[in-house]
Every structure is written in structure tokens, then in C-alpha cells.
Write a protein that binds this DNA or RNA. Structure first.
Length: 874
DNA sequence: TAGGGTTTT
């Protein structure tokens, strides 16, 4: 996001504020003040910075290329001037001068893999890094992929003794202020490193455990949903790798984050929703635990919640909590945003270790980027001998199209004499031909074509990670942006980047979500390019001209600006943030978006008219569910169908339960598609999708043998003969995603536990065994309708249908399933993946779980309803 | 007649 946009966002934030005492002028003044202290502090910290401390501006170079850099500088000019002025003024501002400590000298590495670890770029900077952490409350670490930041920095901090020192200091100051409780053994002794993805948290914890030569779960552990290895064996874990959602949950119970002395917010540049919220939450904890009250440091945004923050501060003082240090780790240079948010933060830049990747652009814009991608991949294949190719495409459709075209063209290469090189390759491995076809991957004339997207069954996904089969000369992977961050592919030498992606967007004015094809950002382009330089030098072929690259946004739109915030708002309210509109967001969301969220929460009864959290809202906030589903669950007791609703919300939180659910697909997977659709028929409920999901889960429970360990017990094995099947086999036979089902099961168990736990123990005290399953399920339908009363749609007969009724026949197939939503009055259609899609007699009224704009406005998760079931609720 | 990618005490 560029500066203008940022400022615009700030201004929106200001416009929201109602407090007449804090006019926007005053705010601006405060902001200036903050800026001043920021530049002042960063000036100070350069003393302890190494050579590259000054080179922050240059680090964009490998990413954006020469011309991109020029433009960037121009854009930044205004900001730079700002800084210069404030530098001049800085002398008259009194800021508590922190005594400069001497450079920390880190002891030699201990543990395993010492040679590898000392070769990492971050190793050279460990002394100054730890010194910066010791001297500053906030340190921004800008480090590219391959620098070792995520694995090494937490260990350095632990080894440096910074935690011990600040804990002791806090204990001492607590003693001098008459506080006799000494908690320096208890609080602030762990480091938390947050990750946007659970796989990353788990693998990092495992990696660092082995590097430090300790059993996972002792010194180093991970904490992700359903999997917590911290504090095993009674040891207090020192380095905790957690998903940011997990730390956020922890903050709901413990806003001071007492356990931690340092919190590292990793992958900050990704700007995930949870990381962004954590920024504000961590900042609040940091402020409450800071020893010196620097009024300049108090963000104006805290004013409204001052009372609560003051309470937190008292508590921190009473407990003798050490200061909380924050380390923001980011791969891109959007440091200004972070620095504006954390005034006075010190910055350090650590180079990554990547092989050089050559950037190639097209001369002209490509109208048909699919055709361009296809041709480019074929050209690389024709003119080079080795190196795998990764092609970024926006979606599954595009991937499948390109895959089948690629196959066709590679087959034709065999007969094309003009393409000498290709022919040679083809002849060498002719024997393999197209005989191999596993899942959606195939080998065509020695080329292993793999497709990769999230909705793909895990087995089929694995092909992209497997080494090339014998005799294959090359692997071509066609992927969505799943390969951008979520997974790592080895051996990629060529990246083909179409420059597009699909993003989920949320319109606060309509409350509708949509999936849009749009241009990627420069940061994403850099990330894609980086995939080519992991093991050797590579080439990145961008299917757009350089001038188009220059015009791309520098960073992607943060998720917080793109999604429905009702869940986040509920969480913030539960954390005691009175007015989330004045919460300190890294990038404040649109005010309409917050207002819309409040409207929903109010309709659900989670907040009252004065927007205060109700008892029900408090209960809803305890559930790791979307507020609508939390509401659905809470009122299921009334209908005596808690058990069924637990299953449904579990199933709804797992995406892609069904494989090959109806529809298109190319000739190769056509067979599987039909099989999948017919396999799903047995689960189909006449009443719609939610009862069908219930059927799947119940059938699985009745017919499959599942063991979390992967190995069924003796007792379970005995049942194998008597109609029971192993989990994996059952899923395969029924075209159900085993992974998704297990996830649904886990979510169900977790929520069931939470719901059944007594209220005194922070639970909901619900009777979770209440079931209405007598074959009819009427209370269950009533409950769904009442729970989803905001998502009701009424059928509108189409012109064709009207005609059919009056006896006319146009010959056209009558289009069925057109509805109008009761709230908003949108014209919607039933999504093709719904079990109610294409029904001859569609129900007059339905409730739905999701409304999505793609080629049309669709509703999904559709269930039959009746007027009398939802009527009274609105 | 169609699904970018994450994730929650």
C-alpha cells in the first residue's frame, strides 16, 4: 500500500471517531509527534546497526528491478521529506535517552548442525541483532527467504540472556516500589514466534528442537489448534512457535501475555487477518508492561480504552511483569507502515541467500494469458535441457485447461520435425508415453505434468513434491498461489508468472463476498520469482511488460480490508476493547465494514443497542466459530438438537468435504467425476446440504474405523469384518476428503468439549448429548432455519416456469432455483455444488450459509425451509 | 452449472 492510501485509511479512521475532544487536528498533531519520536529513535539506533542498517531503501532492488526502484523512490519522496523535517526538529523533543549498552557478544553456537547454522546470513548479524533487541522495545527485522531468521533469531534471543535480564530488572523495580511478590521466575520467560500457517509453526519447532539438541516439547515447542507440544514433561517451554490465531486466543484469556518476554511476529509482510489484529493486541500488552510511561508513545487510538489499559498497567505493575519486547519479522520493505505503528522501532536488514533469478518480461501485454503461459512453458521446454518449470495461474479451471492443452501439444511435438531438441527428448523416453496417469498428474513424452491447488486431494497434490519419475526429463507444475507461500517446491528453475490471482473480496456496503480476478502485487511477484532461485540460478518469465510490473501495487491489500470482520470485532469486544473503531490497527479497516459487523452482531444478540457485549455475546466469543454459527449452536439447545448442530458446524468449518462433486473436468478425470457424483448420492438429503453433511458424518461414524494415531486398535480391527472399513478406504470409496473429515471431527470434539464444560469453568454448560435424530429431524430443520434467519431466500419463478405453468412451451430448459434473499433482496441462484441444485421442484424457501459472487451471485450450503420456521425471528 | 490461500482457548 502506498503512503497516500495509508493516509487515506488513517483519515477514515479519524472520521469514525466520535469523541469531540480529539479533533482530527489534534490527532494529526499527535501523529506528527509520533513520527518525530520514530525518526529520532531510529536515528539513535543506527549507532548499533551494522553495515546494512542504512541500506533499507536498496533492498527493494532485487525485487522490483531498476526501473521499479526509480518509481518507488519518487513515490516515497514526500515521506522522506517529512522525516527530514522531523529530524531537524528532533533536538527540542525530550525523550528518555536509553543508556547505550555495549554490543552483546554472543557465545559460540551449541547444539547440532553448527556448520550449516553459522553459514546462514543471519549468523553474521547475531551480535547486533541481540543488542538491538536488548536496547529497544520493538525491532523490525527485514530478512528475505533463506536468511535463517525464523529458526535462528529465537534461539539467539534465548541464548543472549535478554529475557533473564529484563525479568530480574522488573522484579527489582517491583521490590523498590513496595511490591513484595517476585515473579521473575514465572513471567516473561518465554519467546513466542507466530506464524500464519500451522504447518510452518510445527516444522519450525521441530527444526529448532533438533538444532538445539532437545526433545521437541521441552525447550522448544509448538502450539497450534489440536496440537500443543509446549510444556511437555513439566518443563516450561522457552521458545514457542504458535499460529497467530493461537496467540490471539491466548490474549483473550491473558491480555498481558504474561508468559512472554519477547514476541516475534513472523511473516508480517503477509498481512494476514490474525497477524494484523495481533499487532494491536501485542502493542496494547507492550504498552501496559512498559516501565517508562512516555506519553508520546501512547497512541491516540488508545485514549478511549485508556481505563482498561490503565487497569492492565496496574496489574502488570502489581505482578512485576518485565517489559514485553516485540520483534517484527518481514520479508518486504514495507517498513514504513510498521514504523508508523511502532514509533521508535529499530530496524535491521539481513540479506537473504538466494541464487540469482533473471527477470524476463514480455514486450506487449498479453490478452490471453493462458495461451501465453502455455506457449512460454512449451518454449522453455523446447530450448532448454533441464530444470523444472513452475507456472502460476489464477485458479483450478485455468490450471486444468492449460494442463490438457499442454498434454495435447507435448504429444504433437513428437510429429513436429522442426523442433529438433524436443523430438530428441521425445524419442529417448517414448516408452513412457501417456500411460501414467495418477490423479490429475500425467507424463507426456517425458514431461511430468503436475497440477497443484488447495481443493485437490492430498494424494494428487503429492505428485508436485515427488521427484520426477525415472526417464522423465522435466516436471512442469501448474499451480495457484498455494505455491507462493504455503508449500515449498524443490528444484524449480523456471517460474512462469501470469501476474494474476483470484482474491476473496468483501463489500461492506452489500455484505457480499466475491471472488475476483486481479493483478498481483510486486511483493507477490517477488515471492513467485523467489521460487526459482532456491537451489540454483533461475529464470522468472513474467507474462506482462515491465511497464505493467512498475504499475503494480507494491504490496497486496491486507486481508483485514477484504473480509467480513464480525468475528474479529467480537473477539476484540471480548478482550475488553470498548470501541473497536478506535482500536490500534496496523491498517484500520473501512468504517462501514466495522459498522456492518456490529449490525450483524446486534442482530444475533451478541451486542446490545449501545454496542456492549451481552451475556450471549460473551458466550459466542468463547467459540472458535463464525458468529452466525456460534449463534446457531447456542440456540440448538432450545430445539433439542445440539448433537446434530455440533456435527453441522464441524462439517461446515472443514472445506471441501466432497471430492469430484459433480461438474466439468477434462476427458481424463471425467470418469472419476461421474463416479464421485454417484458416490455422493447416498448422502444426499432431499432437504438440502446441511442435512447431507450430517448424513456423511453419521455414515462415517457408523461405517468407518478411524484412529487418530493412524493405526486402529485391536478392538477396532475386530470390527473390520463386520461391515466396518478403515477410514482411508471408506473415504476413497465414498469420494470424501479424509483430511477434511478428520478436521470436522476434531472441530466437533473441541466445540463439544467447550460447550459441555460448566459455565464456572469458562464453558457454556450446554447439554451436548441432546439429539433429535428420530429419522424425521424436524427440530433440526427448525433450528437451522431459526439459526440462519438472516440468510433466508425465497424462490422466484423464472419466466420459463411461468410459461410452463400456463401451458406454453418455448423449448428451452426452464431455469430453476432462482431466489431472492430476504435481507438485501439480492437475486441469487443455487450453487451447482449444492444438493438442491437442478431440482425439478425447488423448495419455496431456503436458508443458506454463504453467498458468493463469481460468474453469478450464488448461495451455498442451502437447506429447505418453511415460512413459519424463520418468520418470527425477523 | 463452478471452488485464490490461510486459520481459531
Amino acid at each position: 500500500m502506498d503512503n497516500d492510501m495509508y493516509d487515506a485509511a488513517i483519515d477514515i479512521g479519524i472520521a469514525v471517531k466520535e469523541d469531540p475532544g480529539s479533533s482530527s487536528k489534534e490527532k494529526k498533531k499527535k501523529r506528527r509527534k509520533r513520527k518525530r519520536s520514530a525518526s529520532e529513535a531510529s536515528e539513535g539506533s543506527t549507532i548499533s546497526k551494522g553495515d546494512d542498517g542504512q541500506q533499507l531503501g536498496d533492498a527493494a532492488q532485487p525485487i522490483s528491478g531498476a526501473s521499479g526502484q526509480k518509481k518507488k523512490k519518487k513515490k516515497k519522496k514526500r515521506h522522506t521529506l517529512d522525516n527530514d523535517t522531523s529530524l531537524e526538529q528532533s533536538s527540542d523533543v525530550q525523550k528518555p535517552v536509553e543508556q547505550k549498552k555495549h554490543l552483546i557478544n554472543m557465545p559460540p553456537l551449541t547444539g547440532n548442525l553448527i556448520k550449516e547454522r553459522s553459514n546462514l546470513p543471519v549468523y553474521q548479524h547475531r551480535n547486533e541483532l541481540c543488542t538491538l533487541v536488548a536496547d529497544n522495545d520493538v525491532v523490525l527485522v527485514v530478512a528475505e527467504t533463506g536468511s535463517g531468521k525464523s529458526t535462528q533469531i529465537p534461539a539467539y534471543i534465548l541464548q543472549s540472556g535478554i529475557l533473564k535480564k529484563s525479568a530480574k530488572a522488573a522484579a527489582a523495580s517491583a521490590l523498590t516500589s513496595g511490591n513484595t511478590t517476585s515473579n521473575h521466575q514465572k513471567f516473561g520467560r518465554s519467546i513466542c514466534v507466530t506464524q500464519p500457517r500451522r504447518v510452518a509453526a510445527i516444522t519450525l519447532a521441530t527444526r529448532v528442537s533438533s538444532e538445539l539438541n532437545c526433545t521437541p516439547g521441552t525447550i522448544v515447542g509448538h502450539r497450534v489448534r489440536f496440537d500443543d507440544t509446549t510444556d511437555l514433561r513439566g518443563q516450561s517451554t522457552k521458545i514457542i512457535f504458535a499460529t497467530d490465531g493461537m496467540l490471539l486466543r491466548e490474549a483473550m484469556v491473558d491480555p498481558l501475555l504474561k508468559r512472554y518476554g519477547v514476541i516475534c511476529l513472523d511473516e508480517a509482510h503477509e498481512r494476514s487477518l490474525q497477524t494484523d489484529v495481533l499487532f494491536g493486541v501485542v502493542k496494547r500488552a507492550m504498552f501496559a508492561r512498559s516501565t517508562a510511561v512516555d506519553e508520546d508513545m501512547i497512541d491516540a487510538d488508545f485514549e478511549k480504552d485508556r481505563a482498561i489499559t490503565d487497569k492492565m498497567r496496574e496489574e502488570a505493575l502489581r505482578l512485576g511483569l518485565p517489559t514485553l519486547k516485540v520483534c517484527v519479522m518481514s520479508a518486504t520493505l514495507d517498513v514504513e507502515t510498521f514504523q508508523r505503528f511502532f514509533p521508535g522501532a529499530a530496524t535491521i536488514k539481513i540479506p537473504g541467500r538466494q541464487f540469482h533469478v533473471q527477470e524476463v518480461y514480455t514486450e506487449d501485454p498479453q490478452d490471453d494469458y493462458l495461451d501465453a503461459a502455455l506457449k512460454t512453458a512449451l518454449q522453455i521446454h523446447k530450448y532448454t535441457h533441464d530444470g523444472d518449470i513452475l507456472v502460476f495461474l489464477p485458479g483450478q479451471d485455468e490450471i486444468e485447461d492449460v494442463a490438457s492443452l499442454l498434454k495435447k501439444h507435448l504429444e504433437e511435438l513428437e510429429h513436429d520435425d522442426s523442433q529438433e531438441k524436443s523430438r530428441d527428448i521425445v524419442q529417448d523416453i517414448k516408452g513412457i508415453g501417456v500411460s501414467f496417469n495418477s490423479g490429475n498428474s500425467m507424463i507426456v513424452n517425458g514431461v511430468f505434468i503436475c497440477v497443484l491447488y488447495a481443493a485437490l486431494p492430498p494424494d494428487a497434490q503429492m505428485n508436485a513434491f515427488r521427484p520426477r519419475p525415472d526417464g522423465c526429463v522435466r516436471k512442469i507444475i501448474l499451480s495457484t498461489n498455494i505455491a507462493e507461500t504455503s508449500v515449498t517446491l524443490n528444484g524449480i528453475k523456471y517460474v512462469v508468472d501470469c501476474g494474476k490471482h483470484k482474491t476473496r473480496e468483501y463489500s461492506s456496503s452489500t455484505g457480499m463476498e466475491s471472488l475476483k480476478l486481479s493483478n498481483i502485487s510486486k511483493a507477490q511477484a517477488a515471492q513467485r520469482m523467489g521460487r526459482a532461485g532456491r537451489v540454483s540460478e533461475g529464470v522468472c518469465l513474467r507474462l506482462y511488460p515491465e511497464i505493467a510490473f512498475d504499475e503494480l501495487q507494491s504490496t497486496s491489500v491486507p486481508e483485514i480490508l477484504r473480509v467480513n470482520l464480525s468475528h474479529v470485532i467480537l473477539q476484540l469486544k471480548a478482550m475488553g476493547i470498548h470501541d473497536p473503531r478506535s482500536f490500534s490497527f496496523l491498517t484500520p479497516p473501512d468504517k462501514d465494514s466495522i459498522v456492518k459487523s456490529f449490525e450483524l452482531l446486534q442482530a444475533l444478540g451478541a451486542v446490545d443497542k449501545s454496542l456492549d457485549l451481552t451475556v450471549k455475546g460473551r458466550e459466542m466469543s468463547k467459540l472458535p466459530l463464525d458468529p452466525v454459527y456460534a449463534h446457531l449452536l447456542l440456540q440448538s439447545e432450545k430445539f433439542e438438537c445440539v448433537s446434530e448442530i455440533l456435527t453441522v458446524v464441524g462439517m461446515l468449518s472443514a472445506e471441501n468435504i466432497f471430492f469430484n462433486r459433480a461438474g466439468r473436468g477434462d476427458a481424463d478425470s471425467g470418469l472419476a467425476t461421474a463416479a464421485g457424483a454417484s458416490a455422493h448420492k447416498r448422502f444426499a438429503s432431499n432437504e438440502g446440504d446441511l442435512p447431507s453433511l450430517l448424513n456423511v458424518y453419521n455414515a462415517w461414524k457408523a461405517e468407518a474405523i478411524y484412529s487418530p494415531s493412524g493405526k486402529p486398535s485391536k478392538h477396532q480391527r475386530k470390527k473390520l469384518g463386520s461391515g466396518k472399513m478403515l477410514h482411508g478406504d471408506w473415504c476413497k470409496q465414498n469420494f470424501i476428503s479424509g483430511r477434511a473429515l478428520v478436521r470436522a471431527h476434531d472441530v466437533r470434539s473441541q466445540i463439544s468439549e467447550l460447550a459441555s464444560r460448566p459455565k464456572e469453568k469458562n464453558g457454556l454448560g450446554m447439554r451436548v448429548e441432546l439429539s433429535c435424530d428420530d429419522g424425521e429431524l424436524i427440530p433440526f430443520y427448525k433450528c437451522i432455519s431459526a439459526g440462519l434467519f438472516l440468510r433466508v431466500a425465497i424462490r422466484v419463478p423464472s419466466a420459463n416456469q411461468k410459461q410452463a405453468k400456463t401451458g406454453g412451451n418455448s423449448g428451452a430448459i426452464p431455469s430453476r432455483g432462482h431466489y431472492k434473499t430476504r435481507v438485501g433482496g439480492n437475486s441469487v441462484s443455487i450453487h451447482p455444488t449444492s444438493f438442491l441444485f437442478g431440482r425439478i421442484k425447488p423448495p419455496k424457501a431456503v436458508v443458506y450459509t454463504e453467498m458468493l459472487q463469481t460468474s453469478k451471485l450464488y448461495i451455498r450450503g442451502v437447506t429447505q425451509s418453511k415460512k413459519e420456521w424463520f418468520d418470527e425471528e425477523l
